[in-house]
Amino acid sequence: MSLALNNFTVHAGRQCLLQIDSLTLPSTGLFGVIGPNGAGKSTLLRALAGLVPHGGSKRLDGGWPEASRIGFLPQNFAVSASMSVAECVLLGRRERLGWRISAHDRSEVARVLALLDLSALATARMDRLSGGQQQRVLLAQRLLRDPRLLILDEPTSALDLHHQLQVLSHLRTLAQDILVIAALHDLTLAGRFADHLVLIANGRLGAASTPDRVLLPSCLDPVYAIRSELLPDRDNSPVVVAHQAG
């Protein structure tokens, strides 16, 4: 049982944006996708989510989950609609909603809101929330889809430190049963929470392994054009300190 990409390519016209010859990872867990700006992280995630066409094959447990079992949270998520937080989360079940909202749907919405510490905001208007609050609401909406595959493009980019830790802890719990793939910019958090890291550089696969094998100066320095230093924290996870190269 595994996630397998073979000859996986994404093109924009004649330009090749992403090329992964072969990648095999376990079928559950939290996978962090790291790499510098423009490396192809979002392209990989959007292709996995089925939002852009790709070449080659992608397999999860020998097939691929249907669209309703994939939860994708894009990088640009701002919502300007005046609907309530609960109404917004409910749309996560868009395909299964009828004219009446069932008691089951309501209790499921309440459950995912509680999971992400959002119950107090259930009646708040989406267009009046901060970016970080909106990001958590939309994550709750994706969780309502009961996803087999959760794909998140920088899910902590708008969050404060407390909620970064809370969301990543929750994703790690979820990842015991499903596959969570998240693009992450904070290498220290990525190393601490991810089971595996996939390093993308210039549209190619730079490395794919456990954090202790990817978060190495030999991997990071040429890709990020930095001079990195790895210091162990008290849990023995690496803290990545970056210095300007040269």
């Binding site: 989510a49 939002l51 669209a67 309703s68 994939i70 939860g71 994708f72 949270l73 894009p74 640009n76 998520f77 701002a78 919502v79 300007s80 609609a81 609907m83 917004c88 749309l91 996560g92 868009r94 395909e95 939309l138 909406q141 994706r142 889809r145």
Partner: peptide, 15 residues
């Protein structure tokens, strides 16, 4: 109603 969330979010919901 889903489209009111914006194109990116609506597409991410499989629309």
């Amino acid at each position: 109603t889903s489209l009111r969330l914006g194109d990116g979010n609506a597409a991410s919901l499989g629309l």
